[in-house]
Amino acid sequence: MNYSVAFSTILIKEIRRFTRIWPQTLLPPAITTALYFLIFGKLIGDRIGLVHGIRYMDYIVPGIILMSVISHSYSNVVSSFYSTKFQRHIEELLVAPVPNYVILSGYVCGGIARGVLVGLVVAAISMIFTDTRILHWDIVAAVFVLTATLFALAGFINAVFADSFDDISIIPNFILTPLSYLGGVFYSVEMLPGIWQKVAQGNPILYMINAFRYGMIGVSDVQIQIAFAMTAGFILLLASLSLYLLHKGIGIKN
């Protein structure tokens, strides 16, 4: 059997899903980004001055882009896979001879596609407000894709365990958004008081944002090797857990 056909079917279906409803999926991040730059960058940023020798408006660009990638890769998979369960058309996949890794990669790549597309939209908006230039394209691309992969996997696991629509909004609202804001999107951890600097280092999103910031503007609060190692480690962990859940049929089979 040709598994690449099954994979591309899931992926195309996923991409069509979020592009069909682009006013809900692609337009809001563009508007939100513009507001971030207007309020935090222009109005407040002018009073803050320089961070690590860089204009505040330019400093927050990487964090804002990556925050969009995180939230959209996550929400794409969690909402899509949960509604697949809710409407029971997950059964279409379960009766077919599609291996679990193909199901997982199809949905995760759908999440990556949306995360990357939204990231590009946000990056394009940021170009209107800033004159940021990318210093290390390879690091930027790697962090972009790895972060989207990690949060798409997290969204998948959330969807597997979700029993109601409430369950798919709890983690984004109460964990993901706070961790993103506290992950140094709008500030350098060096600006935090001593103890909070230590606390912030327990936040995995901090490492990803700083690696991305290093790739774009060349400054970081953490070592990027650690950031890559952590992201890769989490991806392996969540991918293994997702495959185990699919294998056992937890949350999707009777």
């Binding site: 059997m1 598994y3 099954a6 079917t9 279409e92 996949l93 077919a96 001879p97 599609v98």
Partner: peptide, 8 residues
């Protein structure tokens, strides 16, 4: 889509 899941 179902045909696709069967690799057609």
């Amino acid at each position: 889509n179902q045909a696709g899941y069967y690799g057609i």
